[in-house]
């Protein structure tokens, strides 16, 4: 891996790791993974966090570019943006490992009985 433009890359990776290092923020990402494109109200629904806290966490996720937003009509919708996490995965997992990891993941899924995904 070349490190051209490394300051930007490392800085943005720092921001991504910091954003991910919080259980509440990961819970918000899980919610978006389940259903992409939710507004603040929907994301707050059923969570034991204040609206202000959720809003603050979303701002951190957005600054790290893990969440992107679009205005649709009057509401601001939040989308899980997997690109920076994929950049991290590609950096260390590498092209040669991908096939094997997919086989292992598939095996795990079959053994654990979650084979309804595909």
């Amino acid at each position: 891996m070349q490190l051209n433009g490394c300051i930007l890359d490392l800085m943005s990776m720092d921001v991504v790791f910091r954003a991910l290092a919080d259980e509440s923020r990961r819970a918000l990402l899980d919610r978006l993974f389940e259903r992409n494109g939710q507004n603040l109200g929907e994301l707050c629904d059923g969570l034991r966090m204040t609206r202000q806290a959720v809003s603050k966490h979303l701002a951190i996720l957005e600054a790290a570019n893990i969440v992107s937003t679009r205005k649709v009509g009057r509401s601001k919708l939040h989308f899980l943006n997997p690109v920076p996490i994929n950049d991290i995965a590609e950096r260390w997992i590498g092209k040669f490992e991908r096939g094997r990891l997919e086989v292992l993941r598939e095996l795990k899924r079959q053994l654990e009985g979650h084979n309804d995904e595909q």
Binding site: Q2, N86, K95
Partner: peptide, 22 residues
């Protein structure tokens, strides 16, 4: 597909090499 394509595109434009050519 998109996340992998975009990671590759970013790498190609910034370093001259894609991450993966599989």
């Amino acid at each position: 597909g998109w996340p992998r394509i975009l990671s590759n595109l970013k790498s190609l434009l910034e370093t001259g090499e894609p991450l993966s050519t599989t």
